[in-house]
Design a protein around this nucleic acid. Structure first.
Lengths: 156, 156
DNA sequence: GGTAATCCCTAGTATTGCGGTGGGGAATAA
DNA sequence: TTATTCCCCACCGCAATACTAGGGATTACC
């Protein structure tokens, strides 16, 4: 059982967005630099996030991405499911036809687990995440390292 | 995010074991037939389960596998971690060196999620699982279909 | 209007791990 | 002795992941 880095990257990128949006749209180039994610890969992830109405792109110089909804409305589950097709632990996609058209021995278990995971991720919003002391600390270190933040507002 | 079928198969097989152990050791051939899992693949899974002291093999005719511990002592987490190396949602294996030796923005989140999943799976024992009405029902259907159960006791 | 910055799209590609196969043993009950 | 079982190891095809490459559209700024 493992979380793909796809989901991790997407949440990380969305966090970056939430933390810097106040200074205008955030470019993927910035996120790529600060979070250490390949630019082209980011673009692919953001294509999915856009399709799911989680972000909106702003073209042209000074452009970038914005959250399409207030961070209080976006949950981690929203992000993960947007990029990571299946958050499901069952094989049968919840249909119950796991074994020759009937439920397998452990069908219920995996349904429960899937729900458990989903509920957990769905109970955490971007806003809550961004407000964590540990997160703010890491974000400030990153900003210092790449001289972002205030300088970005004047640059744009 | 997805659970590999490896973990699913292992839990299913262990359930089969728990449900039929009363009639003597259970052969992998039986499990393979009833649960629809390739025999050779099962052997690989059971090699890991054996290494983790969850089952013991009995060689020779009439042999098979037994639970190495009472089903009340074996949790789903035990099984999944035995076959599925990483139940960890973080990239850094909990070390916190995800980004250039420092914690990444979402490190805490994935740690929390990993714990959440682990605690859930660890709170469920094989015995509890086997006692579920839904499970008993499916098991009985399977037994009828493959004429196992009582006939097995006399066959062995 | 031109230019540069940005998003946007599509097509690749290397690697990895999963799920599965095959074959050849060693132990042991009958 | 033989059949049955566990046990071990090496391989293989496939799909998905993580990533690269390149070529557009759109738009702010001069």
């Amino acid at each position: 059982m493992k979380l793909s880095t796809k989901g991790r990257y997407a949440v990380t990128a969305m966090m970056d967005l939430a933390l810097h949006e106040q200074f205008g749209p955030v470019t993927l180039a910035d996120i790529s630099k600060c979070q250490g994610i390949s630019l082209s890969y980011l673009e692919q992830l953001f294509a999915k996030l856009r399709k799911h109405d989680l972000v909106t792109g702003v073209r042209g110089p000074g452009g970038g991405y914005r959250l399409a909804q207030p961070p209080e409305k976006i949950t981690v589950a929203d992000i993960v499911t947007a990029v990571d097709e299946n958050v499901d632990a069952t094989r049968c996609k919840g249909k119950g036809n796991c074994q020759n058209g009937a439920r397998c021995l452990t069908h219920e278990l995996w349904c429960d687990l899937s729900n458990q995971i989903y509920n957990f991720l769905n109970s955490i919003t971007l806003a809550q995440l961004a407000a964590r002391p540990g997160v703010r600390e890491v974000a400030e270190r990153q900003d210092r390292l790449h001289s972002r933040n205030v300088s970005k507002a004047s640059a744009a």
